[in-house]
Design a binder for these strands. Structure first.
Length: 265
DNA sequence: ATCCAGGAATTTT
DNA sequence: AAAATTCATGGA
C-alpha cells in the first residue's frame, strides 16, 4: 500500500515529539497504535505502508485527506515558524487515538521524551496483550479499564502519575472521551476536570487526537521560544497571541517551534 | 549531589 | 483571578 504525499515528512512527523509508539528499523519505522502495528517508509514523495491494508486508518492517522496548503502558507509568513519549517520540513500533526493520547500525555508531565516512550512501552508490556508481528513479539496498548493496579503501574516508572491514570478510569467510564466532541473551550474544560490534567496536557490531547488545531500547548521549550522570539508574558497570553497570529493553526506553529528549539538549542 | 524534563495542585496575594 | 509556592520522579 502506498500514498503520494506533498509537504509531508514521515521522519519529522514521527520524530517531532507528538507521538511516542514507534521505532526505527533500518529505513522504515515500526509504528504502533492501540492493538495495531505497521511499517512505514518514505521515498521522496511516496509513503509505503506494510503490515496493514487498512487504507482509511492510515489516511486518518496522518491526516492525509486534509489540505496542508493554507497551513504551510500561514507558517511561511512568520519568520520564526518559517525558519522552523526550513529546518524540519513536512511535520504534520497526527490524529492519534484519544485514549492512547490521553494516557501518553498524563505520563508526559515533568518528564522527557525518551522517558515517556520507555514508560509507555513498559505499561504496554505489563497491561497490554502480546501479539506476533513480522516475527517479533509486540504488545498492544493497555485497553481502557485495565490500568488499575497502582503498584504495577509504578513499576513501569511512571511514579506519581499512576494516581492520575487510576482516576482516569472512572472519567473514561463516565464518558470523558465522547465528551470531547464539542467545541475547543468546552472540551478543554472537560479534560481539566480530571485529576492530573492541566492546561498543557489538555491542549496536547485536543491538538494531537481531536483535531483542535487552535490548541497551543505551552511546555518549557515552547515557552522559551516564545519568550525569546515573540513576547515575555504568562502562558495564557502566549496562547492568545499565537491564536491571533496563526488564525486557527496555532497548534501547527507550536509543533514547529517545539521541534526546532528542542533540537537546535 | 544538583539540575532538568512536553506540569499540576495548592496556597497566598 | 492571578501569582507564587509546593509537590513529584527518574535519569543525566
Amino acid at each position: 500500500m502506498q500514498f503520494k504525499v506533498t509537504d509531508f515528512s514521515l521522519e519529522n512527523t514521527l520524530e517531532c515529539g507528538q507521538f511516542f509508539r514507534f521505532k526505527k528499523e533500518g529505513d522504515a519505522y515500526l509504528v504502533q497504535v492501540r492493538d495495531k502495528a505497521f511499517y512505514a517508509r518514505q521515498e521522496s514523495d511516496t509513503v509505503f505502508i506494510a503490515g496493514t491494508s487498512d487504507k482509511r486508518f492510515i489516511r486518518h492517522l496522518f491526516r492525509l485527506d486534509e489540505d496542508f496548503t493554507p497551513i504551510k502558507k500561514a507558517l511561511m509568513k512568520d519568520p520564526h515558524t518559517r525558519a522552523s519549517y526550513e529546518a524540519f520540513p513536512g511535520i504534520r500533526l497526527m490524529r492519534q487515538d484519544p485514549w492512547e493520547c490521553t494516557v501518553s500525555y498524563i505520563c508526559s508531565q515533568v518528564s522527557n521524551i525518551p522517558k515517556i516512550r520507555s514508560s509507555l512501552e513498559q505499561l504496554s508490556q505489563s497491561f497490554g496483550t502480546p501479539f506476533r508481528f513480522n516475527n517479533q513479539i509486540l504488545y498492544s496498548f493497555p485497553e481502557p479499564g485495565t490500568l488499575t493496579c497502582n503498584k504495577t503501574m509504578r513499576a513501569c516508572g511512571i511514579g506519581f502519575r499512576a494516581d492520575y491514570l487510576q482516576a482516569l478510569n472512572t472519567e473514561v467510564k463516565a464518558g470523558l472521551l465522547t465528551d470531547l466532541d464539542t467545541t475547543y473551550p468546552q472540551a478543554r474544560d472537560r479534560l481539566m476536570r480530571c485529576k492530573g490534567i492541566g492546561e498543557k496536557v489538555a491542549d496536547c490531547i485536543l491538538l494531537f487526537s481531536k483535531g483542535y488545531d487552535e490548541a497551543f500547548p505551552v511546555d518549557v521549550w515552547v515557552r522559551r521560544a516564545m519568550h525569546k522570539h515573540y513576547l515575555q508574558a504568562p502562558d495564557k497570553e502566549l496562547r492568545e497571541f499565537m491564536v491571533k497570529r496563526f488564525s486557527g493553526y496555532a497548534g501547527y506553529a507550536q509543533q514547529y517551534l517545539f521541534m526546532h528549539t528542542r533540537l537546535t538549542s
